[in-house]
Amino acid sequence: MRSGPSARRFIVLRDVFNGSLGEFLGGLALAALLALLAWGRRRRAIPPDGPGAGAARQARRYTLIGTRAPGGHPVQIISTRPVGTVVKHRGPAGPEDFELTNAVLFDGTYAAEPLDRYR
């Protein structure tokens, strides 16, 4: 065992190290937990793309391509459904299926492409 002033310094440093190690490790664990929670929250906040993605969707206005209302203007619908969804429009010529797309038209609406015409 050591004796003298250097031994007292060693004992004091050992006591300080042993006393603060628990606090240091606790703080490190808390910082890691907070970083993990922040990462998880940010990851959930970014909406994924594609069908079935995200619960809170914004409403989009779609223009049904090649379809006219009785007044002659293009038929538009508003939907919160994801891209790729097939919707049915019942017009004067009968029901017709349209697929919602991400394509933006010149007027700022999204395109809904007719499916029955291409089959």
Rank of each mutant, 00 (worst) to 15 (best):
E113F: 15
I65P: 03
D15Y: 03
N18G: 03
P5Y: 08
R43Y: 11
L34C: 09
P114F: 04
L64M: 03
R43T: 15
H89S: 06
D116K: 08
E99W: 01
T67M: 14
P48M: 04
S3A: 05
G19T: 14
D97P: 14
D97Q: 05
E96D: 10
I77S: 06
R81Y: 09
W39Q: 10
A35Q: 08
A32C: 10
S6M: 15
Q58E: 12
A53K: 00
F24G: 01
R60C: 12
P114E: 07
A103N: 03
V87T: 10
P92R: 10
L13K: 11
G26T: 09
G84H: 08
F106P: 09
V16P: 00
N18I: 10
G27K: 11
T63S: 09
F10N: 03
P51C: 02
P47I: 09
Q58H: 12
D97G: 00
R8L: 08
L34M: 05
D15F: 07
P114T: 05
G84V: 09
V104W: 01
L25A: 09
G108P: 14
A53V: 00
L64A: 02
A53Q: 08
R61Q: 10
Y118H: 15
G66W: 01
K88M: 15
L33S: 07
A35N: 07
A31F: 12
A7H: 01
L21T: 11
R90W: 07
L33C: 04
I11A: 15
R41K: 04
P48K: 11
G72E: 10
R68A: 12
R57H: 08
S20L: 08
P82Y: 12
H89Q: 12
L64K: 07
S6E: 14
R68D: 13
A29P: 00
R61P: 02
A111D: 05
L30V: 03
M1K: 05
V86G: 01
G52W: 06
A59R: 07
R9V: 05
L34P: 00
R42N: 10
N102G: 06
L36T: 13
M1T: 02
S3C: 01
R42L: 15
R42F: 12
L115V: 09
N102P: 01
E96R: 10
R9G: 05
L28Y: 08
I77M: 11
A56V: 13
A38H: 13
L64E: 11
P74A: 01
G40W: 09
V16E: 07
I46P: 01
Q58V: 11
L28C: 01
D116C: 08
R68H: 09
A103S: 08
R117P: 00
G40Y: 05
L64I: 07
G108V: 12
Q76C: 12
R8W: 07
V87S: 06
G26R: 14
H89Y: 15
V75F: 02
R90V: 15
R60D: 01
A111G: 05
G108Q: 06
G40V: 03
W39H: 06
H89L: 11
V86M: 02
G50M: 02
S3G: 15
L13P: 00
A69S: 14
G94P: 08
P5C: 03
G108W: 11
L25G: 14
G50E: 05
Y118N: 06
R117W: 06
Q76T: 13
G91H: 03
